[in-house]
């Protein structure tokens, strides 16, 4: 497939935004049960603002993918059958919930809504946070399923796609939250860095699993099934046009195999190896660590995710390509 930068930016930006929100609410939940020191609401408010900015940027990028962006509102109608439609509904809902969560923290409007049997209060932000968390995971599932549901794009048609979207988005979000915590909430910096490390390692495992799986895939379709002639040797002589068509532009990445392989190692290095190193250094340095180190970890990881997403699209080999192999 031809990687569209609009979609590369959309999926990486909203993934990081969702991860950041999950990190914020994880801290708040732990703090509510006294497992972590309570943090100032400024930390949550600032974090929510950044998360909303990431989500808005992602949504903005997605419009560049559309031929007719002015009709985008129509895309919320087919949620019964289309994962894309479901994403279109869940994304603004999650965005709104993150916004409300941030506003509640920023204004300090945080009344106790209920009390647990243990006596622990349930605040407004806890309710918003739980709904937001559900929506964040729903959004990961929707984004992943858009690709995983296409059964003949076999590189994508695996549960690993959804797992990767969830883990990689969360990893970048937790890295960002850790970088943010250096100045805003030093007390939870080691906690967030630790989780960023764990999720990045899990992401490395699941992404490696999908790379190994995809390397072993045998194509189901062949020229024989494509044109229905059962002869072992079939060569395309012309594809019916010489100047190219939508089919030759949309479904081929147009890069060499060497380039593809380089991007693969580049993203393995920048999404996983370097951030893992930087996060480990940041964690061992404790609260006194320079904030720039963790910020760098996030920046490198985000760059790596751009490469990872590019590779994700480029690697998928569409069966329609069988019909477009020869210009003459």
């Amino acid at each position: 497939m031809h990687p569209a930068f609009s979609v590369v930016f959309l999926t990486t930006l909203i993934g990081a935004g969702q991860g950041l929100f999950l990190a914020l609410f994880t801290v708040e939940s732990y703090a509510a049960f006294g497992l972590l020191p309570a943090q100032s609401s400024d930390f949550y408010a600032l974090g929510s603002v950044i998360a909303v900015i990431l989500l808005v940027l992602g949504l903005f990028a997605s419009f560049f993918h559309l031929g007719r962006p002015e009709r985008a509102w129509r895309s919320a109608t087919q949620w019964r059958t289309s994962w894309l439609s479901r994403e279109v509904i869940v994304l603004p809902a999650f965005m709104g919930m993150t916004f409300l969560y941030g506003v509640a923290h920023w204004t300090g409007f945080n009344p106790v809504i209920a009390t647990l049997p243990s006596g622990a209060p349930i605040n407004l932000t806890a309710v918003l946070g739980v709904i937001g968390t559900v929506l964040a995971f729903a959004l990961y599932v929707c984004t992943g399923m858009i690709y995983a549901c296409l059964r003949f794009l076999r590189e994508w048609h695996t549960p690993l796609t959804v797992i990767n979207y969830t883990l990689l988005g969360s990893a970048s979000g937790f890295s960002l939250a850790a970088a943010l915590a250096v100045t805003e909430a030093p007390g939870v910096m080691p906690f967030l860095t630790g989780w960023a490390l764990i999720i990045t390692v899990l992401g490395l495992i699941s992404r490696s699993a999908s790379l190994i799986r995809n390397a072993r895939l045998k194509p189901k379709s062949s020229l024989q099934t494509a044109i229905g002639i059962k002869h072992p040797k079939i060569v395309q002589k012309t594809m019916g046009m010489m100047g190219g068509a939508f089919n030759t532009r949309e479904f081929f990445h147009g890069q060499t195999r060497t380039m593809l392989r380089s991007i693969k190692w580049l993203f393995l290095l920048t999404t996983f190896v370097i951030p893992l190193g930087l996060l480990s250094v940041g964690l061992s340095a404790g609260t006194g660590s320079p904030g720039g180190l963790l910020a760098l970890a996030f920046v490198v990881q985000y760059f790596g995710l751009l490469a990872e997403r590019w590779f994700f699209f480029a690697q998928a080999n569409h069966p329609q390509n069988l019909y477009y192999q020869s210009v003459a």
Binding site: M1, L66, R68, S75, F246, E250, Q320
Partner: peptide
């Protein structure tokens, strides 16, 4: 109604759709 998102063309194994 079409918004030109190309998703249907990804979902067609025959490459029958053109933007």
């Amino acid at each position: 109604k079409c918004i030109g998102c190309k998703y249907c063309s990804w979902a067609c194994p025959y490459g029958a759709r053109e933007l």
